[in-house]
């Protein structure tokens, strides 16, 4: 018995997890793929009978779907690039001993731990153009006011700002940890050579930190591209469809239009998109030897 265990432990140990994944994940995915090849719609009264790839052929002509892809990337890239720039900059700033450092680390944790649905409600309240606190503060400083999530042009940046608020701390913490792990020698050499602070950062710190930054970036990409709670709570895709990302569009097709077949094809494409981004993660993790 014990021998059998020992010999097969590399299969037996992961077995329960694999079974769980098979049932809870593989079944839903296969089911969704099957649905995507049926015209199943509760509202149009069409049954889930196989009809091939028709749903997928319709996708390129669906202007809302095409727009939602672009929008998803707009949101993701805007949010993540801001997070990385701000995160790295703040991490470099905080990378020294000073009073209150522990407290600041604690406060950094709060945004990403807080429940997104609850936080989205707070931002929604703060964003109201006429009676919201943000415009009030801007007005008090004589700055131009914004319409935030209440306007087609500013809605994606406003949502991205919430994401930036929530997740920049993660980049900061990852970079701080990465900075602590860096070897000391190059810095000492730089001091000896009389390099300025900026030169040290530019030519020594950043290159050495790059692997950490890129992994953090890619991790954020995977999660940002799937953002749902915040958008669903704050705008549900509005005004018009101007904040409708693929995730939201799939939700609308499923649960507001009840076109389960078509929604499934949107989901499958979406899955493919996230998967490719994730493969990028794995690939770069390997190539960077982390």
């Amino acid at each position: 018995m014990s021998n059998f265990l020992d010999r097969n432990v590399k299969w037996l140990f992961p077995l329960p997890a694999i079974l769980f994944i098979l049932v809870m994940m593989v079944f839903p995915i296969l089911y969704t793929v099957w649905n995507s090849m049926t015209p199943w719609s509760i509202s149009a009264g069409r049954p889930p009978t196989f009809f091939g790839l028709e749903n997928y052929q319709k996708l390129p002509d669906d202007s809302r779907f095409v727009a939602s892809i672009g929008r998803t990337f707009y949101f993701t890239i805007l949010a993540v690039s801001l997070e990385v720039i701000l995160g790295v900059a703040i991490a470099l700033l905080l990378n020294r001993e000073f009073r209150f450092k522990r407290i600041i680390n604690s406060i950094m944790l709060l945004p990403m731990m807080a429940t997104p649905v609850a936080i989205a409600m707070v931002w929604l309240l703060m964003y109201v153009p006429t009676t919201g606190i943000i415009n009030f503060v801007l007005r008090a400083f004589g700055l131009p006011e914004g319409l935030w999530v209440y306007n087609a042009q500013s809605v994606i940046p406003a949502l991205a700002l919430v994401d930036v608020w929530e997740w920049t701390p993660m980049i900061i913490l990852i970079c701080l940890a990465g900075l602590t792990a860096l070897p000391h020698d190059p810095f000492e050499a730089a001091v000896v050579d009389g390099a300025s602070t900026w030169q040290t950062i530019r030519y020594i710190t950043l290159p050495m930190l790059m692997p950490t930054i890129s992994v953090a970036t890619l991790l954020r990409l995977i999660d940002a591209i799937k953002t749902f709670d915040i958008i669903y709570t704050m705008t549900q895709g509005g005004p018009g469809f101007t904040s409708e990302t693929i995730n939201i569009y799939a939700f609308v097709q499923s649960f507001q239009y009840f076109n389960f077949g078509y929604a499934s094809s949107v989901l499958v494409v979406f899955f493919a998109v996230v998967l490719s981004v994730s493969l990028l993660v794995t690939y770069s993790r390997r190539s960077l030897e982390i």
Partner: peptide, 21 residues
């Protein structure tokens, strides 16, 4: 109307009206 009505449903509209503006 006040700015931003294109993302306003009744809760936002009510809030603005109830404030008297």
């Amino acid at each position: 109307a006040p700015p931003g009505t294109t993302n306003m449903s009744w809760p936002q509209a009510v809030a603005v009206f109830a404030q008297g503006s």
